[in-house]
């Protein structure tokens, strides 16, 4: 397989202007892999180990897509992006989708021209402080120094929260999450603020994680969602329904363990989900066994949650809002039919 790069033809002759915007799925199939923009190193969401193997919930979502498209979860390339240049990367077609703990907001959905494909993780912004500071509520944080990351919604939420509660603070802003947690650890700041899931992950980088605690106040809604560019509905549908398929699989108890047995199930909704009945996969532009591929190679939503951030991981985050709707959470997927 030859690698085509635009740079090369640019160097040879002046490039022909305005290449047509081909369908993303065709590009992916021609390329043989999905380009997935992820976070550069956030335990539980997307993190490479010393050998460059990626793990995390965002990573597994992209693997599920690769499984659905290619029946091979390894046919995905991960591109670590900073908070700052993730949107540019998606807009300039450097990646096919962003699966990078990105908050779904109206302006990103409309003004920046993206489509959010459903919520992978319901999150909220919180505060991490030292236990030694003896603070029990965020309302006691007046006159503190707060470390936060530039180019995120957290910086703006933080300003809103302190302003609406008439508290004074000093914000110290850094470019990358690593710099922020390092500054907090060195004592430059009293408070570290970001999405709670991320606080859990960053806390692992501290030399004594148990000396720090998360305050009970959650100051924002942060629905973290994968996103694609406007203007390619088919690809948008595939990304959206891959997420829904994983949720539905959990709801119908289709997991990596139970898959073979559930394939024999007589329940019509399970049969539809697993492509034994109907041609819902083909309607998406995939094969009918797409959900089987996803579950076999990657697992259902509950499995990837547990494996990466939940009880089965180092983070041990409570499922909370991310439980299925019928178990008291918010995760609710439209039916496949």
């Amino acid at each position: 397989m030859k690698r085509s790069t635009v740079l090369f033809s640019l160097a040879l002759t002046f490039a022909s202007a305005g290449a047509a915007n081909a369908a993303t799925l065709d590009d992916i199939k021609a390329r043989g892999s999905i380009l997935c923009g992820v976070s550069g190193g956030l335990a539980g969401f997307a993190q490479p180990d010393d050998k460059g193997n990626w793990t995390g919930i965002d990573v597994d979502f992209c693997r599920a897509l690769a499984a659905a498209v290619f029946n091979d979860p390894t046919k995905v390339k991960f591109l670590p992006l900073t908070a700052k240049d993730r949107f540019t990367a998606l807009q300039s077609r450097e990646v096919d989708l962003l699966s990078r703990n990105t908050t779904w907001t109206s302006s990103r959905d409309t003004q920046l021209g993206f489509n959010f494909a459903g919520v992978v993780y319901y999150d909220a912004q919180g505060f991490l402080v030292r236990k030694a500071a003896k603070v029990s509520s965020a309302l006691e944080l007046s006159n503190t120094t707060v470390c936060t990351q530039s180019g995120t919604t957290t910086q703006l939420n933080l300003a809103d929260y302190f302003r609406s509660n008439n508290m004074k603070y000093e914000a110290v802003v850094f470019n990358t999450a690593d710099e922020v947690i390092k500054a907090y650890e060195s004592g430059r700041c009293d408070v570290f603020t970001t999405d709670v899931s991320q606080i859990y992950a960053e806390r692992l980088k501290l030399s004594k994680p148990d000396d720090h605690m998360i305050l009970p106040e959650l100051i924002s809604k942060e629905p973290l969602a994968p996103l694609v560019r406007h203007g390619d509905d088919q690809w948008f549908d595939i990304v959206k329904w891959t997420l829904f398929a994983m949720l539905n699989a959990e709801e119908y108890d289709v997991s990596q363990k139970t898959l073979e047995q559930r394939l024999k199930s007589e329940r019509p909704d399970v049969k539809r989900l697993l492509g034994i009945e109907g041609n819902y996969g083909e309607q998406l532009g995939l094969t009918n066994d797409w959900v089987v591929r996803i579950v076999r190679h990657v697992g259902n939503y509950g499995e990837i949650f547990d494996r990466n951030v939940g009880e089965g991981s180092r983070l041990k985050i409570d499922r909370g809002l991310n439980k299925l709707w019928n178990k008291g959470g918010l995760q609710y997927a439209p039916p496949i039919r």
Binding site: S150, L156, F174, N175, E179
Partner: peptide, 16 residues
């Protein structure tokens, strides 16, 4: 993270 022109304007403002 010293708030100079690049950091405040070409950084935060550009992001937002």
């Amino acid at each position: 993270g010293y708030p100079d022109l690049v950091s405040v304007f070409a950084g935060t403002t550009l992001n937002n």
